[in-house]
């Protein structure tokens, strides 16, 4: 009985504190803040304080929620929560920073692949439920964008699984981490370098930052699916985007950087790992989101689709073939 209680408390801790809701929200919002600050510095602006997304989140939480007359209320309000829950669940599958994933099981790679689609689906369902025409255009673009980045992402994951598994299967993140344990990070394998590049390009599309923010495109279709949202649901969606930034960069670090494990024992080892992981995520954010954002203007949806199914998919496929041959 006592075991059950302790286990329940422990699991609740995983879900609520680390690596669940509290940790991932703070990490995500901080990354979003860093992104905005660095972007501003790149454009020679002063930029908002790094905590600005946190302030925004609490401000929005306090605002009134307005629901359009045409909206399907349950789906409209439920969508952001579903997206948020699936993101938190992904966190529980990720073995980051030398920390054993609470939900780590065989085959979690495929589960993560699926769970990653749910926030996008939630955004689509929410936008769709609002009944707004802007949202209609937005969700159509979101859907095409989803198909665009999913293909290269799948091939990247397969290449990594093949390298980690050797002759057998390795759809398990723990196996992928173990294969990199001796400091032989996958990012140093020459066969996987095209896959690394492909993954770096998948991240901004998955998060939906400029130039791949075709679905939200605020200057054009008023944030698309989010156009009718206000108050707490809007805050949740903004939070989801921020969390996605952290999760995608953390996934990158798991796949190619061995999940950042410095190998120091004890609780301060974990703390140190987490700090280094966050730093790595920040660097990745700046590299693949902020930098591209500062350089490029928004693409059209058909250009984005073509780019992902040709250039990025080709990169990933080259990697898969190299991995297969060597």
């Amino acid at each position: 009985m006592l075991d059950i209680i302790i286990n329940t408390i422990k699991n609740a801790g995983f879900v609520l504190v680390f690596p669940g809701i509290l940790f991932v929200s703070i990490a995500g919002l901080l990354l979003a803040g860093i992104d905005r600050k660095v972007l501003a510095r790149m454009q020679k602006r002063k930029g908002p304080p790094i905590l600005q997304p946190v302030y925004d989140f609490f401000k929005l939480m306090g605002k009134e929620t307005i629901i359009p007359h045409e909206a399907n209320k349950t789906a409209f309000l439920g969508a952001p929560i579903v997206g948020f829950v699936s993101l938190v669940v992904i966190m529980l599958f990720l073995p980051i920073a030398g920390f054993e994933a609470p939900f780590g099981i065989e085959g979690d790679l495929v589960i993560i692949l699926y769970l990653l689609t749910i926030p996008a689906v939630a955004l689509i369902i929410g936008g769709s439920a609002s009944g707004s025409p802007f949202a209609g255009i937005g969700i159509s673009r979101e859907m095409v964008a989803m198909m665009a980045y999913e293909l290269p992402l799948v091939i990247v994951l397969l290449s990594v699984a093949k390298v980690a598994g050797g002759d057998s299967l390795a759809f398990s993140l723990n196996t992928i981490i173990d294969a990199q344990a001796g400091g032989e990070l996958f990012i140093t394998k020459w066969q996987l370098i095209p896959a690394v590049l492909a993954m770096l390009l998948v991240i901004p599309a998955e998060v939906g930052t400029q130039p791949f923010d075709v679905a939200e495109a605020e200057t054009e279709i008023c944030e698309g699916p989010l156009v009718e949202y206000s108050g707490a649901p809007l805050a949740m969606f903004k939070l989801n985007t921020a969390i996605k930034m952290f999760i995608m960069t953390a996934l990158f670090s798991v796949l190619f950087l061995g999940g950042i494990n410095l190998g120091i024992e004890g609780w301060y080892g974990i703390v140190l790992n987490v700090v280094v992981l966050f730093a790595a995520c920040a660097v990745l954010t700046i590299l693949c989101m902020t930098l591209i954002h500062a350089i490029c203007a928004r693409l059209k949806i058909e250009h984005m689709f073509k780019f992902y199914w040709t250039v990025v998919t080709a990169l990933a496929a080259i990697s898969l073939i190299l991995v297969w041959i060597f």
């Binding site: 929620t65 307005i66 909206a71 309000l77």
Partner: peptide, 13 residues
């Protein structure tokens, strides 16, 4: 969701 759906803050236009 059910709670927020029913509270008075969510004003339906």
């Amino acid at each position: 969701v059910i709670l927020t759906g029913d509270n008075t803050r969510g004003r339906v236009l």
